[in-house]
Design a protein around this nucleic acid. Structure first.
Lengths: 327, 327
DNA sequence: CTGAAAGCGCTTACAG
DNA sequence: CTGAAAGCGCTTACAG
C-alpha cells in the first residue's frame, strides 16, 4: 500500500542503501542522487519515522512537559522551544499535566517509551522533591521550577527577588496591608511567597497570605472570603496570571475601585493586563529567553554529559501600571 | 544499556512473545502473567514505541494541526482532543502552523512520516482550496474551517449566522455605521465577513469592512487608520479574539468611550473579554464540543471508511455585555 | 496457553 | 561511491 524505500530504490534503479544515503547525508554521486530524488518525487515516498528511529537509535525528539498549556507563560515557552528544536531538526512532544501528578507520571513514562533525546520539564511541587529518585536515560532541564538541591540543570527567574520588587513597589506607594495569594502546586509560587514574606518583614509589615489552587476561580473565592473578614487589605499581590485574573474579577465584583480602594499587582505580563481598567502592575518574565536558554542547556548537556549541573537564573522586570499607583 | 523485551523474558523465564502478550491483551496464564509483571517491575522495562509501531503497523496517534496555539480557541480545542484521545489510549501530535502555509506543508509531511491514524486539522485559507488535491493514507476531520465543497468530514459553527447575530444585535441597539475587521487567512473569517455583509444589507445598512492579518497589532493599526478617515463608525465588529484585543486597544488609545462613542463586539468569549471596561459583547463558541465531536467523527470514519462525508454545524451563542449596549 | 521464527522499514558497518 | 546483509525491538501468524 504505502510506498517504501525499496519501491523508490526499484524506481531509481539503485539499492535501498543509496536511497537512504540520499535522504540522509551520505556520500552519493550526483548522478544517482538525481535519479533517487526524481524517484522520490514520482512515488511520493515519505520515510517511516518509526523505522528510522528504531534503526538509527536516535529519536531526534525533545520532550516538553508543562503544567498548564492554558497559561500563556507555557504557550510562549513551548513556541520558543519548538522554534529552537526546529532549527536543530528535531521535533517536540508537548505534554500538559494540568498540575496532576498522575498525568505527570504517565507522561514521564511516555517520554521513556518514546526514547526522547532530552526533556524540558516544569514539575509539579509534588514531584519536585522526588526528582532525585527517578533515573532516566535522557538529560532533563527544569524550567520555571528548580529543585531545592541543584542537582539538575535548570532555567528559572529569581522569584524571591521578583516578589520583593512587587512588595517594595506597593510599599513605596504607601500600601501597608498587602494581602498575598499564591498557587499551591508550584515551587515557583512557594518562592514568590517566601520573597513576599521576606520583603514584608524587611519593611516591618505583617504578612497576610493564602495558598490556593492555581485557577482564577480559586483566587476569586479566596479573595472574596478575605474581603468579607477583618480589616480590608489595601493591596493584593498574586503569584501568576491566572490568579491575577481571578483577583481582578473578585475586586470588580465586590465593587471596589482599583487602585482607589485596593491596589492590585501580580506576575505575568499578559496582553489583557494592559487592557483592563487602569492597567495592571505586573512582573514580566523573559519567557522566550527561558525556553531558548533551556534548549541551549539541553544541547550542552548532550554534548558534555558529565558537566556539573547548572542553574541559570534570569530576572523578572517590574512593569508598573495604574492598578498600583496611588493618585 | 536500556532494558529490552528479551531481558524481561529472561528474568521471567518465558519467551519474548509471552512478555509481549502480557503487555498487550494476549491470552496468558495467570501464573506466567504474574511472573512477567514482576520481571517488568524488577527491570523497570519500558517498551520501545518506535519498535511497537513499526511492527504492529498501528501508530495509535492522532495528528492535530492548528493555526495558532496562542489563540485560546485552539488551546481549548487541543485539550478536548487530548482528553478524548487519552480515553481511547491514543496519543496526540500537536502542531502549530502560525497560519504559515510552509509550516503547514511541513507538518502535513510529518503526519505522513509518523503514519498517524487520523488527523484533526484547521487549514489556512491558502490550503483549504487545494485540500482535494492532497491524498493521504489517513482520514481527516476539518475543524473550525470547512472546505467549500463538502468532501471532507468537518466540525464547524455556523459563521454566517453568528456574524448575523452580532450585526442584528448592534443594529437593534441603534448602530448603523458598523465597521467590520476580519482575519485574512481563514475561511472562517471569510464566512463571518459574508454573514456580516448579508446582515448589513438585509437591514439596508452599508457594509464597511477590511481584512487584516490575524494579529492584535494589525487590527489596531487598521482600526486606527479607519478612525482617522471619513465619518466615524458607531460600532465595530471583529472576527476573532485576537482582533478583538487589537480593536479594543485602538479604541482605548484613541480615547474613545465604549460604547458611548463606539460600540464593540466580536468572536470568542475569552476570560479577559468579561473583565475589560464595560465587558465585551461576543459570540461564544462551543469549543470543547467541537473538539469532542471531531474525535467522534474521526473514530466513526476509521470504523466506516466509506461513509459519506459529514459536516457537523454547531451554533455560536450571543453573549451581550456592556460594550454594545447603548445606555 | 506458549515458543520459535519471521518480518515491520529503515540505517549502517562491511566489503568492494 | 555503491550494494548485500545484518539488525534495531518489537508483534504476530504458525505450529504445537
Amino acid at each position: 500500500m504505502a510506498v517504501g524505500i525499496k519501491d523508490v530504490a526499484r524506481a531509481a534503479g539503485v539499492s535501498a542503501a543509496t536511497v537512504s544515503r540520499v535522504l540522509g547525508h551520505g556520500p552519493v554521486s550526483a548522478d544517482l542522487r538525481e535519479k533517487v530524488e526524481a524517484a522520490v518525487r514520482a512515488t511520493g515516498y515519505r520515510p517511516n519515522l518509526s523505522a528510522r528511529r528504531l534503526r538509527s537509535q536516535h529519536s531526534r525528539t525533545i520532550g516538553l512537559i508543562v503544567s498548564d498549556i492554558r497559561n500563556p507563560f507555557f504557550t510562549t515557552l513551548s513556541r520558543a522551544v519548538e522554534d529552537a528544536a526546529y532549527r536543530a531538526e528535531m521535533r517536540v512532544v508537548l505534554c500538559n499535566t494540568d498540575e496532576n501528578p498522575d498525568r505527570e507520571a504517565m507522561y514521564l513514562r511516555l517520554m521513556q517509551e518514546e526514547r526522547i533525546t532530552g526533556l524540558i520539564y516544569a514539575p509539579t511541587r509534588a514531584s519536585i522533591g522526588r526528582l532525585g529518585d527517578l533515573a532516566f536515560d535522557f538529560p532533563i532541564v527544569l524550567v520555571d521550577r528548580a529543585g531545592p538541591n541543584g542537582d539538575h540543570d535548570a532555567v528559572v527567574i529569581d522569584n524571591v527577588a521578583a516578589a520583593g520588587l512587587l512588595v517594595g513597589h506597593l510599599a513605596d506607594q504607601g500600601h501597608a496591608r498587602i494581602f498575598g495569594l499564591f498557587g499551591n502546586t508550584s515551587s515557583t509560587a512557594q518562592e514568590r511567597h517566601d520573597g513576599y514574606r521576606a520583603a514584608m518583614s524587611a519593611r516591618g509589615l505583617v504578612a497576610d497570605a493564602r495558598f490556593v489552587a492555581p485557577q482564577p476561580e480559586a483566587a476569586a473565592t479566596a479573595l472574596a472570603e478575605r474581603l468579607a473578614t477583618g480589616e480590608r487589605p489595601d493591596a493584593v499581590v498574586v503569584s501568576n496570571g491566572l490568579l491575577l485574573l481571578g483577583a481582578y474579577r473578585a475586586l470588580h465584583d465586590a465593587g471596589l475601585d482599583i487602585p482607589g480602594d485596593v491596589a492590585l499587582a501580580g506576575f505575568d505580563n499578559e496582553t489583557w493586563t494592559e487592557l483592563v481598567g487602569p492597567g495592571l502592575t505586573v512582573i514580566e518574565q523573559p519567557v522566550a529567553d527561558i525556553g531558548r536558554t533551556a534548549m541551549d542547556l539541553l544541547f550542552e548537556r548532550l554534548r558534555l554529559p558529565d558537566m556539573a549541573p547548572r542553574k541559570i537564573v534570569l530576572s523578572g522586570r517590574l512593569v508598573a501600571r495604574g492598578s498600583s499607583i496611588r493618585a
